[in-house]
Amino acid sequence: MDGVRMNTVTSRSGLADSFLPWLTCVAMLAALAMVFLYVPNERVQGEVQRIFYFHLPSAWMAFLGFFIVAGASAAFLWQGKRSADLLAQAAAELGMVFCSLVLLTGPLWARPIWGVWWTWDPRLTMTLVLWLIYAAYVLLRVFAGDNETVARYAAVLGIVGVIDIPLIYISIRLWRGIHPKVEQMAPEMAWTLLVCTGAFVCVFTWLLWLRLRSLHLRDEIRALRQHLVAAS
């Protein structure tokens, strides 16, 4: 029985494994080319502004990760399927990676433009709080071990975290604000942003897939080990 279950993940992985890495590579190369060769300098900010094409998609991916966490968490609480739990875990880890990217690329841009590394602007603060919630989620899983109870705890935290996002946003918005808003973009810029976002979606999906598979494999290894122990 274990042997049958073994094959499920490995066989399903075939298509995605051959397809996703290539797609990601091509998309990423295209994105890089557009950012550095195609798109013109922004009038006021100059070269530095090009980081924006990575910054904004990263932020979107961080949000995407959060919504996947919430969706998968809800699905887990609803049906109790291990796959939903693993999806939430993988998405949280990835979301944290992209959230970190936002927090890194942001100051790199802010230093020359605003003259400071960090400012308590709503979106910056928001991202930081988001990162902290992700960190709590990931650490909860690290500290609390891996079982059904902890999975439910994490799912509750994931859902509460998402409900909290708009509240954080409202309160921080009321608090203060200087973040640049994207107003009118030159068509070249819009195209570059689009391609970059596409590339990031590819990266995100691929990494999510890899992580999900490694988590599934970890489960199978554990099952096999227990099988061995039980058989001995």
Binding site: V129, L132, I133, A135, A136, L139, L140, F143, A144, G145, T149, V150, Y153, V156, L157, V160, G161, D164, L167, I168, I170, S171, I172, L174, W175
Partner: peptide, 29 residues
Amino acid sequence: LCAAIAVRTRAREIILPLMLLPLLVPLFI
């Protein structure tokens, strides 16, 4: 809610503030 989660994990002293404080941000502000 958070304490009910934290109390049944290892390292509960750390886990509770880690979970609770970011979620509390809007209320705190």
